[in-house]
Amino acid sequence: MPVAVLVVWTLCAMGWGVVLAGLRRGVRGPARGPSLFAHAATPAGVVLLCSLIGFGSLYAVIALTAEWWALALVTRLRPERLLVTGGLGRLAAWAVLTAAATLTGCHLIL
């Protein structure tokens, strides 16, 4: 297995853990349970979706890695800020950073 793929998987797992820690620390009230469940189900859902449509999961893993690290950077490790206090500016910054990181990751790895 190429080293770049292992690095992407490691960064993906670390990004998932960073966002999980932020969700556990920051989200309170009735939204806590569903947000933690959705975050925990995301990796399995992505792998199942990719296998169902017959598409390799490396592209999806690169995109997930970019999304989670962009979310951590834009919200300063507090994911609830994306919707609570961020407004459209923070959401746009997250989308732009995710797209740039995904394109860069795809060009570097593939």
Rank of each mutant, 00 (worst) to 15 (best):
I53Y: 01
S51V: 14
A31S: 11
G89V: 10
V84Q: 15
E67P: 04
G22W: 01
L73D: 01
T75S: 04
V96Q: 04
A44I: 05
R76T: 08
A101D: 03
V84H: 14
A95C: 14
M14N: 01
R90G: 13
T65D: 04
L91T: 09
C12F: 13
A70Y: 00
A95L: 11
A38M: 15
L6R: 13
I109E: 07
T65I: 06
L11K: 05
A60P: 07
W68D: 00
G56L: 10
P2V: 08
L73A: 02
W94A: 01
F55Y: 13
A13M: 05
P2H: 15
W9I: 14
E67Y: 10
G29V: 06
W69D: 00
A93H: 13
L6D: 11
E67F: 06
G105Y: 00
V7N: 06
M14I: 09
G29K: 05
E80T: 10
A95K: 13
V74Y: 01
S51F: 15
L97M: 14
V74I: 08
C50V: 09
L82T: 03
T98A: 11
A99P: 03
P30C: 05
A4N: 15
A70S: 02
T102W: 06
V7W: 04
I53M: 09
L97H: 10
R76N: 12
T85E: 10
L48A: 08
G56A: 12
A38Y: 10
T102Y: 07
F37Q: 15
G86F: 08
A13P: 05
I109F: 12
E67C: 10
C50W: 02
A93D: 09
A95V: 12
L91F: 14
G29S: 06
A72P: 02
L71V: 00
A100W: 05
A21P: 07
W69M: 01
A63Y: 04
V84T: 12
A13K: 02
M14P: 02
L83F: 15
G15Y: 00
A66L: 01
P43K: 01
P30M: 11
T98F: 06
Y59L: 13
V46A: 03
V46K: 03
V18Q: 03
R24V: 06
V46T: 03
V7Q: 03
M14Q: 03
T104H: 05
T102N: 08
Y59H: 11
V5M: 15
T102D: 06
A13N: 01
L52H: 07
A60W: 00
A66V: 02
I62R: 00
A4F: 09
L88G: 13
L97G: 07
R81K: 08
G86V: 04
T104Y: 07
G22R: 02
